[in-house]
Amino acid sequence: MRDFLRILFFIFFLRPFMALFIGLRVYGRANIPKQYPFILAANHSSHLDTAALLSLFPLGEIKRIRPVAAADYFERNWLISEIVHTLFNILSINRLCAKKRHENPLLPIEEAMRAGQSLIFFPEGTRSTSGKMGELHSGILHLAEKHPEVPVVPVYLSNMWRSLPKGEFIPLPFFCEIRIGEPLFLKGNRQEALDGLKTAMIKLRDA
């Protein structure tokens, strides 16, 4: 039922919205790996980010793409939780509780990857308020260490924060772009790996 509703939502709302209202342009689409799983690592400045990235995939594949989202935010009430789970198929992780109980908050992600699902991951951890990219958190490194064979695809999303900045609820039709870089494998020294990813994203930003 949820899959069916999601496909209707994509056909009749999300895709026309992205193509006609936002006028989304995509560069480097060929860099998305054909083989699952992979991790799309993007900068985060707007609620549109996830929706725009999901709109790139064929309808048959959307249920295999899981946007990683914070449970404390997206499951703050029943209605919002139902909506985002149904329409965006989010994979919620519990940042706060897990920390208190010394559990690994990334456990559900690893399970999903083992099941052959790909991730949309925002390594900054939260939306930027200025549109500028913030520091990357180390969460993505934990994943890369456990699954060194999974490619990490750097993505830069431009203008999304102008269309729908944090704190606004009506999107405006600014043209937005998705720029996708070549897949990376985060290896070696942790700081170096994180810097490598950030450099790749900045290169896409300035392209």
Partner: peptide, 17 residues
């Protein structure tokens, strides 16, 4: 849409836009 995209608009202009 093309016009506002190339402009340097402020965060505070959102509602007016």
């Amino acid at each position: 849409k093309e016009y506002v995209t190339i402009l340097d608009t402020r965060r505070a202009d959102h509602r007016a836009l």
